[in-house]
Every structure is written in structure tokens, then in C-alpha cells.
Amino acid sequence: MPTTVPAFGNEAADRLASMADVTASDAALRRFLHGLPGVDAVGLQARAATLGTRSIKTTAKANAIDLAISMIDLTTLEGADTPGKVRALCAKGVNPDPTDRSVPKVAAICVYPDMVATAKEALGDSGVNVASVATAFPAGRAALPVKLADTRDAVEAGADEIDMVIDRGAFLCGRYLEVFEEIKAVKEACRRADGTAAHLKVIFETGELQTYDNVRRASWLAMLAGGDFIKTSTGKVAVNATPPVTLLMLEAVRDFRDAVGVQVGVKPAGGIRTTKDAIKYLVMVNETLGDEWLTADWFRFGASSLLNDLLMQRHKLSTGRYSGPDYVTVD
């Protein structure tokens, strides 16, 4: 039996079952989550800042840029989204630079549930996934049956991945078991008729959870409930992904794998716009988790404008000059 199994595999359920005692009741779950080691905010921020000073140049930079492109969930989540806009984004995701076929494709296109079918059709067998936000994204303020219907709708339309939001209200009230059960229910709703399932990303909206201790608790809560990925933010509030929050979540998935033997992915989202920022995140993954997480299966960037900056930097590295925003496509 392997020491580590992926969260999205069938064996993960057995591993999670071994933790059933901590999720048996609200009280047990609270005791467990509050028994996790605390987070010293100053120390966490200092570590993230130090990792941010790594100097990534030449070949390492070229390598990092391609890696980052391949990890992007290229996102459009606007009320004004149209099938035309989604199709344009899909074309871009499959072939980010029309003048350079060596650019890798992105990991997924991330849309609202009603655009899933359009995206699925546009992407075809390109290998780029369709990710859909669901569960009354971004606020999550809807009844559970509505959230589950939202999820099933997206899965039926062909979504490969579901990005759900947790009920921050319940979490901040301390109703951890309620949040846990809801994630489990959404995970169940991700199942398809053929027995496969869409991968589930659990969004915490860390800008609303506020404290680092809350982020660590939410991470363990989501992983215990079967989340395949843990994700920082919706991109819809004032504070989205930050390096310290992401570092903390990387530490949480590391600790979870050590303790439970299940590997979970991490997705920072919102506010990551530049190549420089993206490389800082990759450095954090590299020095906290190493090779095993440095693929699109285990690390994603939720971003929209990041891709163009990566393309411009890629262009600059290969040609020695900066091409400017008119040389990448605006979608």
C-alpha cells in the first residue's frame, strides 16, 4: 500500500475514515481544530517575505514561467460573461501565444456553471480542464439544496473541477461540523453517473476568515472532509491570496499528508498578476513541499491577467526585449 494517496483517488476515503473520531461530533472536531499548533503571524510573514527574496534568473526563470503557465486556472467570473468571451478565453488557454507554439497550455478554464457547457465544447479534447465555481459563489449564502443543485448542474454540464465556497458565517460561528458536512455533501454531488467525480476545490475566502489560526483550521477541516484542493479566495473581496496565507496552506497540506497519508493540492487565487509574484509562489511550493507538488495536479494559480504578464516576460527572455501589451492577446 502506498504511503501517500491522492485526495481524488478512491483509496483516500479509507485514510480519511481513520480520522473519523475527530469528526464524530461538533465538540470533537472543535477540540481537534483548536488543538492544532498556533500560527505566529509575525514569523509566518517574515518567512514568506524571506522566500520572496529568492533571485530566480535565466534558465530557472524560463523554467518557472512555463511551469506557472501550465498551472493557471484561467478565469472569467463576471456578470457580463458571454459565450463569446468564454470561447475566446478557451482558445487562449489552449494556445496562449499564437506566435509561439512552444508555450504550454493552461491547466483549466474557470467559469460560472452556466458557461460550463460552452467552455467544454470550446476546449474539446485539448486537455485543458473546465473548472466551475459553484455553491452560490462567491458569498455562499444559499440553502444547502440550492448549493448542491448548483454543483450537480455544473458537473452534468461537463465540469472537470468544482470550486466551492465554504460557509464562512458558520465557520466564524464555530459551527465546524456544519461546514464539514457541507463540504462532504458537495464532494458527493461532484460524483458522475459513471462513478468518476469532478475534483473538488474548497475556497475559504481567507480575507474573511481574517486570522492565520482560522486558515489553518479551515485547511484541516476541508482536507478531513475530502477536499481535493484547498483554495484561498474567490477574488471577489478586498483581500485575496497573499504569500503568508498560501505558505500556511502549503504547510497544512504537508502536515496533512504526513499525518493522514493523503495528498491535497493548493490554489492561491486573486491578486496574483505578475510573473514576479507567480515565481514567489513557486519558490514557496518548492521550498515547502518540493517536486511532488510542482505540477498542475497539485498546485494552481487562480488568475486572469497573470497569463499575459507571463507571456510578456517569456517573450523578453527569449528575445531580449520587452514586447509590450499590444503583443499579447486581450481577451
Binding site: S55, L67, N286, L289, G290, D291
Partner: peptide, 12 residues
């Protein structure tokens, strides 16, 4: 922990 995917080039 292995670090072969993302190796840092010299940055003197």
C-alpha cells in the same frame, strides 16, 4: 523532499 523540478540558476 526532492527539489529537481525547479532548480535555481546561479544568481551572483
Amino acid at each position: 523532499m526532492k527539489n529537481t523540478v525547479f532548480e535555481y540558476a546561479p544568481a551572483p
